[in-house]
Design a protein around this nucleic acid. Structure first.
Lengths: 112, 112
DNA sequence: TCAATAGTTCGATTATAGTCGAACTATACA
DNA sequence: TGTATAGTTCGACTATAATCGAACTATTGA
């Protein structure tokens, strides 16, 4: 049961985290995980092909925002919220709070 | 004395703000302005040509992070911190706080 | 009115990032 | 031992963004 590499919290880079959160679809994923955790990739695809979804999850993983555990055929994703909070206090919370005005579905759409 | 267009606070877009802050040089500008405010562009160039500097200030202005007032030949920049705080509470503060570990000079370098 | 200063705009170039189909891997389960 | 399911990897293409020199605009102050 091969698992993923995840950067340790002290290797998180602020600009990488901000960049990862600056994409509407990735923000949708993060918001969805904040509500239901953990979740596999499939229900979060929002109409994208699997290859695009996979790419965005990789960006989130490399930035340290998401942890992915392989459980059978499913890859279960959860937020590394405690580690992010320790490293960048208040950052994720303020982003999630700021996103609350935006309809969740609107975020999910592929580029218009 | 021609002035700039600045978006109203309720038109700020979260992803645009995050994208603007996700660039090392722009983060350097924002951190510098947080320390000394207002400042013209010139002392913040950090070795870049004027055209690059101008481009980055435009991104910051369009996102609503920076306000630029034309005063004589100088363009005085300041953070729209109160408006950002009202629109996205805690966001700018947590980014500035998170950036404190990073040496300010390191941010300023053009891409390595 | 002329030079100097501060910054913008333009256009070209390059680099980075997103998108997608197709082939591939790994697990589960019949 | 198939076959279905979940997700990755690869490679090509496209879109977006950064970079920079050169020409331009606006203001100041001699």
């Amino acid at each position: 049961m091969k698992q993923y590499e995840h950067p340790p919290a002290d290797a998180f880079e602020l600009t990488a985290v901000l960049h990862a959160l600056a994409d509407p679809y990735r923000l949708f994923v993060v918001r969805s995980l904040a509500q239901v955790q953990p979740q596999p990739c499939a229900p979060l695809q929002a109409g994208r092909p699997k290859s695009s979804t996979s790419h965005h999850f990789m960006v989130l993983r490399k930035a340290g925002i998401v942890r992915t555990e392989v459980v059978g055929t499913a890859h279960m994703n959860s937020l590394r919220d405690a580690e992010l909070e320790a490293r960048f206090p208040g950052l994720l919370a303020s982003v999630l709070n700021a996103a609350e005005n935006i309809p969740l579905e609107a975020c999910a759409q592929p580029a218009s």
